[in-house]
């Protein structure tokens, strides 16, 4: 789980030019990366390919933080 969170944060930070070391598990993904819904969909594709998982959209409802997103990815691995 920590490994997933770390890789997720590094990938997202690199893609959207954020400082990976400043991003924490409880941070809001949209707000901390400054992304819109289009970029979020693109990020989901990148994460699915990176972790070799499928994440149905409905499993992401209510998920706001990097930690929450990492937990969903971890369950699908």
């Amino acid at each position: 789980m920590t490994d997933v969170l770390d890789r997720l944060i590094r990938l997202a930070a690199k893609k959207y030019g954020a400082d990976a070391d400043a991003l924490k598990a409880d941070d809001d993904v949209f707000e901390s990366l400054g992304i819109d819904s289009f970029a979020a969909a693109e990020l989901m594709s990148e994460l699915e390919l990176e972790f070799d998982v499928e994440i149905p959209d409905y499993e992401l409802q209510g998920v706001k933080t990097f930690g929450g997103l990492a937990a969903v990815i971890d369950k699908r691995r």
């Binding site: 969909a41 989901m44 594709s45 699915e48 390919l49 499928e54 149905p56 959209d57 409905y58």
Partner: peptide, 10 residues
């Protein structure tokens, strides 16, 4: 029936 989306690989 789920409205879910899929990536390019899928």
């Amino acid at each position: 029936l789920t409205g879910r989306s899929i990536n390019a690989k899928k």
